[in-house]
Computed example of a mutant assay.
Amino acid sequence: MEFTTALFYVFAAILILAATQVITARNPVHSALFLVLAFFTASGIWMLLKAEFLAIVLVLVYVGAVMVLFLFVVMMLDIDLDKLRAGFWSHFPLALTVGVVVVLEMSAVLWRGFLTVGRQIHGDSGNIGDTKNLGLVIFTHYQLAFEVAAAILLLAIVAAVALTLRRRKDSKYVDPAQAVKVQSKDRVRIVKMKAESDRVTLAATEKQGN
Rank of each mutant, 00 (worst) to 15 (best):
A177L: 15
V68S: 00
I45H: 02
V109H: 00
T164W: 13
H30N: 14
V182P: 01
I79N: 02
A179W: 09
F39Q: 04
V36T: 03
K185L: 06
Q143F: 11
L33Y: 05
H91Q: 12
I138P: 02
V68E: 02
I45A: 07
Y62T: 01
I190D: 08
T131F: 13
Q183S: 15
Y142D: 05
A25E: 15
A51W: 07
A32S: 06
L202N: 08
D78I: 03
V74M: 01
M47C: 07
E105N: 12
D186K: 02
A159F: 10
L165S: 14
A12E: 10
N210C: 09
F146P: 02
Q120K: 13
Y9Q: 13
M106T: 08
L154H: 03
T131W: 09
H141G: 01
I138R: 13
A156Q: 05
G99Y: 04
D175A: 06
P176V: 00
S31L: 05
A13Q: 11
S171F: 12
D186A: 06
T20N: 15
L163V: 14
E196A: 06
A6M: 11
M76K: 15
A179D: 07
L94S: 10
L110T: 08
D78M: 05
I190Y: 13
V66A: 05
D186Y: 00
